[in-house]
Design a protein around this nucleic acid. Sequence first.
DNA 1: GCCGGTTCCCAACAAAGGTTAAGGAGGCGC
DNA 2: GCGCCTCCTTAACCTTTGTTGGGAACCGGC
Lengths: 239, 239
Amino acid sequence: MVLAALLRRLNTVSGLENADIAAIRALPIIVRQWEAGRSIVSDGGRPTECCLVIEGFCVRAKTTVSGQRQILSIHIAGEIPDLQSLHLHRMDHDLIAVAASTLGFISHASLRALTRANPNIAEVLWRDTLIDSAIFREWIVNVGQRPAASRLAHTVVELRRRLAITGRAAGDTFEMPLTQEQIGEALGVTPVHANRIIRQLRDDRIVDISRGRVVVLDETKLADLAQFDDRYLHQDPSL
Amino acid sequence: MVLAALLRRLNTVSGLENADIAAIRALPIIVRQWEAGRSIVSDGGRPTECCLVIEGFCVRAKTTVSGQRQILSIHIAGEIPDLQSLHLHRMDHDLIAVAASTLGFISHASLRALTRANPNIAEVLWRDTLIDSAIFREWIVNVGQRPAASRLAHTVVELRRRLAITGRAAGDTFEMPLTQEQIGEALGVTPVHANRIIRQLRDDRIVDISRGRVVVLDETKLADLAQFDDRYLHQDPSL
DNA sequence: GCCGGTTCCCAACAAAGGTTAAGGAGGCGC
DNA sequence: GCGCCTCCTTAACCTTTGTTGGGAACCGGC
């Protein structure tokens, strides 16, 4: 069921009525397989559909004039990374699959009809983009204020929490299929320095990040380093 | 007219119909004077109203567990910096007036009634929060990839462009009432380093930032340093 | 099973930015 | 007009991160 992760996530994060679920289920979706590294929408593009991650991993990224790349967010099953394109018609960044992924494409036309007809769903999706925004704010703090090792720890904890919503972070292990270069791009450091801090966290027996997997070795030390406060994820709709 | 800057801005950035303008004009707003440095809403708070900046300057900021502060955005006349609180009920950051300001408070109840009754306005406001989000993305790039002097230049150019919408950046001079410490907090550098780069840009005759005012001395050099691409501001609704 | 590309790993050195510590300029209350 | 407080300014020194340039390990295709 292609909508399973999306419905699970929206229900956890915002709460859905039965009518909402039915309306979302009725959306026409085109499912496609995407290979690792392939771009989904590019900076400057004018997409006419939104992309639901059914399975896999995508990132949003921006490249500066001088050619440096910054990863802005990491997206997992159940998320719609380019939902903003519904009202921001020209892309200001790239969306790329970093691992082989299953994607579902939903036309802007059908989404707009859905939100117009169903203000409740409009608010749920609006809220979803606001949570996206809250995560960007935390990333500004991450790159602006924390030393590189803490940045990595914070990113790892955040991803784990988000994966947990759809049951993709059981135990102390989960997938994070980014190369060290991409981890550096997400943290705002060079690949060499990314390697240094990954090694450091491994040597200190805090987390082992290798071959696209993360193994948490010491919860306490990781929490200490990350100084993670989950409020910004707004996972509880009642709060 | 307290709504002048807001309507001017929404109309530039999204386009408004006459009916929308009338409906916005009918909103009940409580106007209050705010002194410089006074907090408007705090991290963890659960506001029941949104705050429109009628005149003045506000910033949003987060403080880490270890006490470091990061400014997330700068807000000017015509903006609603905590519009996200309409659907994100608990604040994940602070909103503070950095200069003496005139603020208008609009209850969530009346805003929600407005958006429910008028899907067009709902979309305009949704789009507004998406532009907010696009600016956060650019700030991640700014803090993550650019050297400190470019970061400052970029921030200056962005603010100038946004002020220009409501005619508050005529000529080569505009207000930016931040202390050097606050500039540092926005750029993710220490106050000492903020001072270094401000001096450097002054010595190089690029911009003179002092006593809360910015004077652009050399457009070309500034543009060069900032590498500014205004697409992320999404100021043209037709694009 | 080998080959070519990607990814990972590492060391030496350079540069950007952080830390500490201090003095000076300007505004405001009395 | 004096004193206080905030903000700005600067210098010397230290730490983190970037740069350059390498080599080793892994992976998929043939």
